[in-house]
Design a protein around this nucleic acid. Structure first.
Length: 224
DNA sequence: TGCCAGGCCGGGT
DNA sequence: ACCCGGCATGGC
């Protein structure tokens, strides 16, 4: 739209968030498989609960594609229970693990050598992997230059009148990617910063972030 | 205590 | 193309 085409706020929001909050150093995991597991487990779930589930997987030495494939479903369910939705998440984690082994030999380098948008389409065919999870995997496990859109992104952008709020995922993704250089580090920080500020100030109860101390954010930015 | 968390899916309109 | 209910645990 004309408003978005002339709106200079997005880059300013990013730089101000970075200055205010500092680098977030995402993803909080050390292997690509742990990132991908966390991306699936965090769906609709508090990150704290995901950490407990990941810790249980590690303690059981189950945090690998081979182990998750070979473990009985009931065991996987028990291990990830703190992350919620544990029955369907166990099924989906095991399906992903099987696919990862069969298609890429459970090798992250091989997987991310694939063209990002082709890989994205492959991921989207897997059960339990939608647009946000696929993009999180591409960006945070594969360091590919795609941007992630989540509920916080929608709320914060809506608050700053950058979007209406109900636009399709890919529209918002395009909106962001058209306004930044294709830099995976930048997309990494930007999404992490939006989540960081969203967790503190932009909850579902206040879709317009009326309580947000950054309420004057956009106007001040435009004044700069 | 209720409401919410870094979604996704299937069925119904 | 939307809209909704289901999925489930744990924290504030």
């Amino acid at each position: 739209m004309s408003r978005t085409a002339t709106c200079p706020s997005l880059r300013r929001i990013y730089h101000r968030l970075l200055r205010m909050l500092g680098p977030q150093r995402w993803w909080p995991a050390k292997t690509p498989f742990e990132v991908m597991t966390g991306a699936m487990l965090t769906q609709g779930t508090n990150w704290h609960n995901v950490e407990r589930a990941i810790a249980r997987l590690k303690a059981a030495r189950a945090l690998s594609a081979r182990r998750l494939t070979n473990l009985p479903a009931s065991m996987v369910q028990r291990l990830i229970r703190p992350a919620g939705f544990f029955r369907q998440k166990a099924t989906r984690l095991q399906a992903f693990s099987r696919w990862y082994r069969a298609t890429y030999s459970a090798n992250a380098k091989r997987m991310f050598r694939q063209d990002p948008w082709t890989l994205r389409n492959e991921l989207l065919t897997l059960p339990g992997i939608g647009p946000e999870t696929a993009d999180s995997i591409l960006l945070y496990a594969g360091h590919q230059a795609v941007c992630v859109v989540d509920a916080y992104t929608r709320r914060i952008f809506r608050r700053h009148q950058l979007i209406e709020g109900h636009e399709p995922y890919e529209v918002i993704q395009r909106f962001v990617m058209d306004r930044f250089p294709e830099d995976p580090k930048l997309f990494n920080e930007f999404h992490a910063l939006l989540v960081a500020v969203g967790k503190r100030y932009c909850h579902r109860r206040d879709p317009d972030c009326a309580c947000c101390p950054l309420g004057e954010f956009p106007r001040r930015l435009d004044d700069e």
